[in-house]
């Protein structure tokens, strides 16, 4: 079963990271899911693939009431991001799924009705959960052509989807990046291959560099915190992407 770790808490404002499943089948990529709670409502970021639903659901249930989950944020359309949608809708048919307008007619292949999807315009939008106004930050072409990250101004946390992702070896399963220089080797190949546009990357770096970020939370690998956040943005800015 996955672990559910609290990475931020301020009263009833909380971020939970659902990470590291020791029983995960080796052929399925490891993913991180994040739950943002505010009062009686919560939003789940990139709930994951259909096969890992039991692990995510049970870890989430161990820490909080799944009935509070009011919305899902799908950074993009990949199966490891959102193919479990139908099961979350089984649990709560009223769930709203926030995603790029580009994917709003593609994601119904994973489940849902016309009422399920809330399309995000290219420039981004604000998503209200409890007392929070979360900001959908454009990250198009990183790697998907319709891609968003989610910024919580109160917690100073940026959910960064595939940006910042690292494919860690099995013996390195720390939740946080401990040694940036050592860690970044596991991110380099991933970013070169999966991020398709240097121009889009530059725009993203400029956009997030002005945000006040304490933690940058990717969908794969470890979380960057403190000075490692700026270190990562600088590193990414220098990296040539879109190459094999």
């Amino acid at each position: 079963m996955k672990q559910c770790r609290t990475i931020f808490q301020d009263g009833d404002h909380r971020w939970l990271a659902i990470v590291r499943d020791p029983n995960r089948a080796g052929h399925v990529i490891d993913t991180n899911e994040y739950l943002i709670e505010s009062g009686a409502e919560s939003l789940l970021c990139d709930p994951g693939g259909i096969e890992i639903f039991p692990a995510v659901f049970s870890a989430l249930c161990a820490e909080t009431d799944p009935n509070r989950v009011r919305a899902i944020f799908a950074s993009h359309q990949d199966p490891d991001i959102i193919s479990s949608l139908a099961l979350w809708l089984d649990f709560n048919p009223e769930l709203k799924c926030y995603t790029s307008w580009l994917w709003a007619s593609f994601l119904p292949h994973f489940g849902g009705t016309a009422e399920t999807f809330a399309s995000l315009p290219d420039e981004g939008a604000s998503i209200r959960i409890g007392d929070l106004d979360l900001e959908a930050v454009p990250a198009h072409y990183l790697h998907s052509s319709g891609n968003f990250h989610l910024y919580d101004r109160g917690a100073k946390i940026l959910f960064s989807g595939d940006v910042g992702a690292a494919l860690l070896p099995p013996d390195q399963d720390d939740l946080y990046v401990k040694n940036f220089d050592q860690h970044i080797q596991y991110a380099a190949g991933f970013h070169r291959r999966w991020m398709g546009s240097n121009e889009a990357k530059r725009r993203w770096c400029e956009r997030v560099a002005v945000l006040n970020i304490d933690m940058l939370c990717p969908q794969h690998g470890a979380i960057y915190q403190g000075e490692d956040v700026a270190r990562f943005i600088d590193w990414f800015d220098q990296l040539t992407v879109g190459v094999v």
Binding site: E51, P54, S58, D65, L87, D90
Partner: peptide, 25 residues
């Protein structure tokens, strides 16, 4: 059937916990 199989696994993984609404699901 595929959804039910995975839902069943999820429910079994939560055994012992009282989750409101699970019976409705």
């Amino acid at each position: 059937r595929r959804l039910d199989r995975i839902l069943d696994l999820a429910v079994r993984a939560c055994e012992g916990k009282e989750i409101a609404g699970l019976d409705v699901v």
